[in-house]
């Protein structure tokens, strides 16, 4: 595999290899000298056309821990704001000798275009494209689920996960549905009908409009952020109604199994999809997700860049 564009491209073996590698990375960086020499001399470009805190910093830390050189390239303050096209940006990166490009773009499919348009030789890693995919987020979610529900090298077969909220605008949801189903988990999407994409019935997972009905039998609940910035019309009558029907608050959390866990990809809208009390509950693993994100991204960078250069496949 040369690029990581979609979790749908990952076989069960690929996915387990990434998770196992991430587990080793976690052990290797749990010591005083956190740096590994593996990607010495390689250049990783973080190409971010959209705002991000967690993902960009996480990729930067991951690349630096593997001794790669990191160039951060944000659309603001670059020639993109002067109207440079994706192609010309890509050609510039190619000329500067980037080995990997971590790309986040508001348009779905931009990383695919970058990987397959023959503009660059570099490995392309999708760090979130529009409402399409965010594969490393799904991998870190699966890693967190595995660590808590199946043991460090256990299997997620049969584990029940509900993904709740703004599925329509969520690249995290799509990536998670593909990956978790590959890993054998039982996924249920929970959202109001207006926030489910057309064709969701072909995703192969269960769909429900009723959060309370689904909640009691889940091993994990993944809350999605309501993406106000992508909403150009009214998808629900009011914030209050949304949070009453689809938000996770303390009374609702009390109906979950006692060993069930809560994930959220961040950033959270406290009081909207998740109440502040639930967000700070010990069963909510948002902070751990961030830590795991670094290990998963180290694993992805190592597996894609650490070996022999593959010709584009």
């Amino acid at each position: 595999m040369k690029h990581l564009l979609s979790t749908a491209d990952l076989s069960l073996e690929d996915a387990v290899l990434i998770l196992d590698t991430a587990a080793e990375m976690a052990l290797l960086t749990d010591r005083e000298v956190k740096k590994l020499p593996t990607l010495r001399g390689r250049t990783v470009v973080n190409l971010f056309f959209e705002d991000s805190t967690r993902t960009r910093i996480s990729f930067e830390v991951a690349a630096k821990r593997l001794s790669a050189d990191v160039i951060n390239f944000a659309a603001k303050g670059s020639s993109i704001s002067k109207g440079e096209s994706l192609k010309d940006t890509a050609l510039t990166l190619q000329a500067m000798g980037a080995d990997a490009v971590v790309v986040r773009h508001p348009s779905s499919g931009a990383p695919y275009r970058l990987a397959h348009a023959d503009w660059i030789d570099a490995t392309v890693i999708n760090a979130g494209d529009g409402t399409h995919e965010h594969p490393t987020q799904a991998l870190l979610d699966a890693y967190t689920l595995r660590a808590h529900l199946a043991g460090p090298t256990g299997s997620l077969r049969g584990v029940r996960v509900a993904i709740v909220g703004d599925v329509l605008h969520s690249r995290v949801a799509r990536s998670n549905v593909h990956l978790l189903q590959t890993l054998g988990a039982k996924v249920t999407l929970v959202a109001p009908p207006t926030l489910l994409p057309i064709g969701v019935e072909q995703w192969g997972c269960a769909v429900s409009y009723d959060f309370d009905e689904v909640l009691a039998d889940q091993d994990a609940v993944m809350m999605l952020r309501v993406q106000g910035e992508r909403m150009n019309q009214a998808f629900f009558p009011s914030t209050l109604e949304y949070s009453r029907l689809y938000g996770l608050d303390t009374p609702r959390m009390a109906t979950m199994g006692t060993n069930s866990i809560v994930l959220h990809p961040g950033p959270m809208n406290r009081g909207m999809e998740i109440s502040a009390d639930v967000a700070d509950d010990p069963r909510s693993l948002m902070v751990e997700q961030v830590t795991n994100g670094v290990h998963v991204r180290m694993a992805v960078l190592y597996l894609l860049l650490g070996g022999m250069k593959e010709s584009a496949s």
């Binding site: 290899l17 196992d20 590698t21 080793e24 990375m25 052990l27 290797l28 010591r31 590994l36 020499p37 593996t38 593997l66 190592y302 597996l303 894609l304 860049l305 650490g306 070996g307 022999m308 250069k309 593959e310």
Partner: peptide, 23 residues
């Protein structure tokens, strides 16, 4: 002590799976 990430021939072969390190 797994040595995979410290090998000098990493670029000659596809990336390998890591093996356990236990100090």
């Amino acid at each position: 002590l797994d040595i995979t990430l410290y090998r000098d021939d990493l670029r000659l072969k596809p990336a390998r799976a890591l093996l356990p390190t236990a100090i």
